[in-house]
Write a protein that binds this DNA or RNA. Sequence first.
DNA 1: TTATAGTTTAACCAATTGGTCAAAGTTAGA
DNA 2: TCTAACTTTGACCAATTGGTTAAACTATAA
Lengths: 211, 211
Amino acid sequence: MVKTKNHDLQTQEKIFKAATEIFEEKGFAAARMQEIADRAGINKALLHYYFRSKELLFATVFQALLKKMFEKILSVFMMDISFEKKIKLYYEEHINILIKNPNLPLFLLNEISHNPDLVQGIRETLRYSEMRDVIYRQHSKELRKFGIKKGELPQLMVTIVSMAIFPFAARNIMKMMMEQLGETRNFNSFMQARKEFASDFVITALKNRKK
Amino acid sequence: MVKTKNHDLQTQEKIFKAATEIFEEKGFAAARMQEIADRAGINKALLHYYFRSKELLFATVFQALLKKMFEKILSVFMMDISFEKKIKLYYEEHINILIKNPNLPLFLLNEISHNPDLVQGIRETLRYSEMRDVIYRQHSKELRKFGIKKGELPQLMVTIVSMAIFPFAARNIMKMMMEQLGETRNFNSFMQARKEFASDFVITALKNRKK
DNA sequence: TTATAGTTTAACCAATTGGTCAAAGTTAGA
DNA sequence: TCTAACTTTGACCAATTGGTTAAACTATAA
């Protein structure tokens, strides 16, 4: 009979959590296995017992963080609601997620840029064909009225997501510039206000397009 | 009499160029001194003869790349022209620069995020007080008419620059998504088209704001 | 209780990495 | 030509890093 493993799940969880923090903060290249072991409160050899190599441990963490970034957002994009509602819901949900995980954007952008193989894992998380169907349906139902041509859809989509994601990637520079420019609010309240600003900005730009 | 150094300038240039390429591509942590030496076609010890350490070599490269990112853009921001003209000129110039240096955004964002001390060097490149004056002048002259409150200026500025910079930071993901969504154009022509799209988008959103 | 499989550790290892050094080569002024 | 400063190199070094191993420990089924 197969023996039940005792508390390896606890240990594995501890390692996974520590690795997530370190990798997300420092990136793959600057992360140290020893530091991950220390933060998990275990021996370095135990890392390799549960996750064979740094690459494997990283791949596990990366997949989870990729999911954290896209899962909820994708479900919003798939909803059958008006574009205006969708925009508002998107900024609300995505900015909430990113406030809780402010290092996520830069981490993902960076690792994907430095290791193209990771892109393969994305295909499973992002369901392209479904996404394309939803986008095209919304285009012919609503967006075409706004004078958006099919070929401009990528421009529009990149615009929308960049308004939510970019401030987090540029967080440190923004913090410094904001305090230099006499801004007293902190970054998080700036991002809270951005939910409404971005929604209004996008919707206004769309509704008043020259057709 | 002090002897004139012979061709150390050529060598120094070669090293600097190689270091710029490697650092920009891989970031500080993943860059290897040996690889820089190889690309420069010289001995590794010579790196340390001209630039004492990896940190110092990196700092030199970083300053130059920071300048490349901001110098021209800042001069556009400082111009005394209408907001509409300024927006158009900004996207034209900045996107041109970034097409020539597509790794610049992710490199700068990442290194600044990982090494807060680098932010100090930014203060020299970014003239805050001048910048603030120009922005406030343009606000009271033009932007206030659009219903933009002073407190919303940071929101507006971040929106404008994110539309130009973010696509480059997300270049790899975008490339993949675009080909999955049936986009046949390449990334550069997408960014060329973005000059006009972004200008129109921002200007339309501003001109039609509810006040 | 005991055999067995799973878990944890300390000590160790080979490879890599940033950096050094002494010696050889090169340049140009006296 | 000779010397003194600058340039370049190959060999080397200490520290770090990802990874291994054998032994000790723990839980549990029989």
